[in-house]
Design a protein around this nucleic acid. Structure first.
Length: 566
RNA sequence: CGGGCCGUGGCGCAGCCUGGCUAGCGCGCUUGCUUGGGGUGCAAGAGGUCCCGAGUUCAAAUCUCGGCGGCCCGACCA
């Protein structure tokens, strides 16, 4: 295509509203323009890149036997009411009414609609397994859209759904998706990590997320570089670091001591001269309207996700000060487990094997020393803490590292939640009714582009992997008004087209500097520069990533690009 | 939903505190000349509901109140 005919509105300066690199570059390079918060116009270059990503996804989904469909974005309330998610989704679900006052919503995911199709049509085990997918627009009324395309209210998702007769079938479908996702992200040129993910309130089914490391991300993952263990921080487990000081020995009884005005773990640590690891942190939480006491080692943080699944109430909250006084007879800062009878007590694994620790006395401005789990109080032992950087890996004992990431894909063993609640049944070979087991699997299309930009850019612009760049090569005559250069440019451009390359000819009447800057900004992997060396019969082939320039004879340059792309 | 910042030609900003001529600057855009290997130089132009509404005032981009919109932090994010 000819650049002079295209709409590629590049900007010299970063728009003030953009903060993360991918957002700035997508705007500057003329890929996108904002329409409203979390709603973007995808202009020519973005659409080209997104279509390439979608085609890679499509090919790999087809390769595992996926069948592409297209479901409506506009959904009647009834199907969401059937699964119970009309209420569960809360404000994140865009809701509207039609002219007759009927409730509708904009689909944020399509388990329900897919299950409706399956329920209406699948009758026999002979029809299973099925892999159904679509590449379609999703709507989510995010409380806070941010970071350009990384968190938006309308986006394109590849979502697939599998239906199998049994767990073994689901395992196969899941594995197929796992491998297909790896191929997709590899082909898109991304460096990514697969992590174990939190399986949600739906039960103990398996889940993995595909993550790209980036400071612009919102998820933290823990990884062991040694044995390869990796998990979302919400789910990660570790061997806690050893306590900073040995516990006092002996069968000691709890002993009260005065701690006026010392409320925090750090205060008590400074006051006693003992490290934070010698204390028990007491948190009072309210789950399902009832109080729960949670105990952690002083230096540990509660994993809200872990507590949410243990308590069965992901919406749990912290207790209010007045509730704490009512239940404990003391203020926060002096709370502890000894003598607590009116609520369940959970203790984190890291407190097992410890003795004679420090905890609040349930009397304002007093603490207890010599408190021992199992002797001075009873608690249910659970995995409640969040992994700290440097904790030992439970597999191999090497230290874990924590990284900030963007989630680009998520695969999930759903189990029977939708097939059961929505009444999907088929007849098995023995003539009995069976409820199929389901899986669901998602890829955020725009996030692949945004994550690639986050990973691969420099001060001059994007450095896109060739597979997802809007063009593979740009032909840049230094001076298009020079007849010889213009002719060579056209020849090379046609040569590239004959080889099937996605080529852009920069035929604009601009200064060479402008053309170089624009080519760098929009991130085309290769540039063929036609200039002074044309007299000697050669042009320059420049690699956007390495900036290396090679002189190549005019007649060979198209082929040289094609070879480098392989 | 809580906290902070912001809204002035397409973009980046100044002006606002201390109200007052035709609302400025840089970039971009148009035309002409010039230049031609990393956002040339010169000249002449076009382009504005100063987010919206109400109020105060002789007078509002500027002060007051209300609203809308955007960004960031937090909460939230099957």
């Amino acid at each position: 295509m000819l650049w002079s005919k295209l709409f590629i509105p590049t900007l010299r300066e970063n728009p003030a509203e953009a903060e993360v690199a991918s957002h700035q570059l997508l705007l500057r390079a003329g890929y996108i323009r904002q329409l409203a918060a979390g709603i973007y116009n995808y202009l020519f270059l973005a659409q080209r890149s997104l279509l390439k990503i979608q085609n890679i996804v499509r090919q790999e989904m087809d390769a595992i036997g996926g069948q592409e469909m297209l479901l409506p974005g506009l959904n009647p309330a009834e199907v969401w009411q059937e699964s119970g998610r009309w209420d569960v989704m809360g404000d994140n679900l865009f809701r509207l009414k039609d002219r007759f006052g009927r409730d509708l919503c904009l689909g944020m995911t399509h388990e329900e609609v897919m299950t409706v199709i399956a329920r209406g049509e699948l009758r026999s085990y002979k029809q299973l397994p099925q892999i159904w997918y679509q590449i379609q627009t999703k709507f989510r009324d995010e409380p806070r859209p941010k970071s350009g395309l990384l968190r938006v209210r309308q986006f394109i998702m590849k979502d697939s759904y599998t239906f199998d007769m049994d767990q073994a079938g689901l395992d196969v479908a899941y594995d197929k998706h796992y491998k297909a996702y790896c191929r997709i992200f590899e082909r898109c040129g991304l460096e990514y990590t697969v992590v174990e993910a939190h399986s949600g309130a739906m039960g103990g089914s398996q889940s993995h997320e595909f993550m790209v490391e980036s400071d612009a991300g919102e998820d933290f993952i823990a990884i062991c570089k040694d044995c390869g263990y990796s998990a979302n921080l919400e789910k990660a487990v570790s061997v806690p670091s050893p306590p900073g000081a040995k516990d006092p020995e002996g069968d000691l009884a709890p002993e009260e001591f005065h701690t006026p005005g010392r409320k925090t773990i750090a205060d008590i640590s400074a006051f006693t001269g003992l490290p934070e690891t010698s204390q028990m942190k007491s948190l009072v939480l309210v789950a399902d309207g009832k109080p729960v006491l949670v105990l952690l080692r002083g230096d540990h943080q509660l994993s809200e996700t872990k507590f949410g699944s243990i308590s069965g109430d992901p919406e749990f909250r912290q207790a209010r000060p007045d509730e704490i006084v009512e239940w404990f007879g003391a203020e926060a800062g002096s709370l502890g487990p000894v003598g607590v009878k009116n609520m369940p007590v959970y203790a984190d694994q890291a407190l097992v094997g410890r003795c004679n620790m420090i905890a609040g006395a349930n009397k304002s401005d007093y603490h207890l020393r010599h408190v021992t789990l199992g002797k001075d109080f009873q608690a249910e032992i659970r995995e409640l803490r969040q992994v700290n950087e440097g904790d030992a890996c439970t597999n191999c004992g090497k230290p874990l590292v924590i990284r900030k990431t963007v989630e680009i894909g998520h695969i999930f063993k759903l189990g029977y939640k939708y097939s059961e609640s929505m009444g999907l049944r088929v007849l098995a070979a023995d003539g009995k009714e069976v409820t199929p087991i389901m899986g669901s699997y998602g890829i955020g299309i725009e996030r692949i582009l945004a994550a690639a930009i986050e990973l691969y850019h420099d001060k001059d612009g994007m450095i896109l992997p060739a597979a997802i760049a809007p063009f593979q090569v740009v032909v840049t005559p230094a001076n298009f008004n020079d007849a010889a250069q213009a002719e060579a440019a056209r020849t090379i451009y046609e040569g590239c087209r004959k080889l099937g390359l996605d080529v852009l000819l920069d035929d604009r009447d601009e200064r060479p500097g402008v053309k170089f800057k624009d080519a760098d900004l929009i991130g085309i992997p290769f540039r063929i520069v036609i200039g002074k060396k044309l007299a000697g019969g050669s042009v320059e082939l420049v690699d956007r990533k390495t900036r290396q320039s090679t002189d190549v004879p005019v007649a060979d340059v198209a082929r040289a690009v094609a070879e480098r792309l392989n």
